[in-house]
Design a protein around this nucleic acid. Structure first.
Lengths: 188, 188
DNA sequence: CTTGTCATGTAACACGTTACATGATTTC
DNA sequence: GAAATCATGTAACGTGTTACATGACAAG
């Protein structure tokens, strides 16, 4: 039972999903490829933590709709309660580039940041759209602890805040790239 | 040449380091174990991108002080200029727990968030301390593009902002865990 | 006297990515 | 007609982690 197993269980705790759907939904907070997810779902099924129903479709391939079992929920709750906090892992190649930003000409640096900013802006709009959808399909306010969307809502909030924070950081850095600040010939 | 290679090169572009030191410094933005770093440094050395000098020490084991070569700098600059933006990877088990937070009693959830908040508070203080050190060992303002610390400064700023942002997010969520909001017996 | 730091390295294993494989339907 | 979407799966490979190995010195 690796962390990804619990990620799958907690998605299924909200609603039944196919492996394909899980792969897409998971991108938001635990990136994994379908080649990792399909075998894991089969394993969880053998362990009795999820079940699936084969759904025949026309025009599209058939799919397996996975649901979490009572055992699965119990296992997930136990993990949430007992799993000690682990270090969060972040690997962002952009940060590598930033560390060495002094090696580049100010104009190159500026372009790098602006490119990043545009990508973030796009992601923010997409998130805002998904947030609106979430609020429309609600049966009660998503801010309500009892709502089935509550956890998902907190996560989307966090995602949006993270993106906004990075945009703010970029806007804070940009004035530091003055065209006047040329690369000095010797910096030691 | 994987991303970690460039991470090592950009650390060495700031100053010569031992593998041991690199392992510690890298924790800030690209987690890797020494068992991955030592063999990679040997590989970079064979490729002529870094060189090392053996430093004999008394009371401590000898160390290899690695420095970046002109070829290494060129390779790094080329990578920064041409490497297309890649998706950033984040894996945080806490986020999995949050997604399924509705399965837990409000008091358990509250405790989980408060525990996280404390850990963040500690990290923030540590970061502030390191930031102060950075500003003391400066030969010119760290906010200056020409400063050798400039990239590192931007990164530390980002780290601190990220931690503060998460603390703010937690403070925003906490009032939503009203003790009155009990787990409903049936939620679909 | 046990734990932590400094310091480097290798071996075994687990995890994760890329590529291979298939195929109907819709959109550009 | 090419590319994207839906949908599942396996094989090969590469990356990354844990564990093994060593050893002096300092601090609690």
């Amino acid at each position: 039972m690796i962390a990804l197993s619990y990620a799958l269980l907690c998605m299924l705790a909200r609603k039944p999903c196919s492996g394909y759907e899980l792969t897409k939904l998971l991108q938001m907070f635990w990136q994994a490829q379908h080649s990792q997810i399909y075998p894991l779902l089969a394993k969880l099924e053998k362990a009795g933590l999820v079940t699936f129903e084969l759904i025949g479709q026309t025009g599209k391939p058939d799919k397996k709709l996975y649901s979490i079992t009572a055992d699965g929920i119990a296992k997930l709750q136990h993990w949430i309660r007992t799993q000690p906090p682990t270090e969060q892992l972040e690997r962002d190649e952009f940060l590598i580039k930033i560390y060495a930003i002094g090696l580049m000409e100010p104009e190159t640096s500026r372009a790098l940041f602006l490119e990043r900013r545009e990508a973030l802006e796009i992601r923010l709009h997409r998130l805002e759209g998904e947030m609106r959808l979430m609020e429309e399909e609600r049966e009660m306010p998503v801010t309500d602890y009892a709502s089935r969307q509550f956890g998902r809502y907190l996560l989307y909030q966090r995602r949006m805040r993270l993106v906004r924070e990075e945009i703010d950081w970029i806007d804070w850095t940009l004035p530091l790239f003055k065209p006047s600040a040329a690369l000095p010939p010797e910096r030691d």
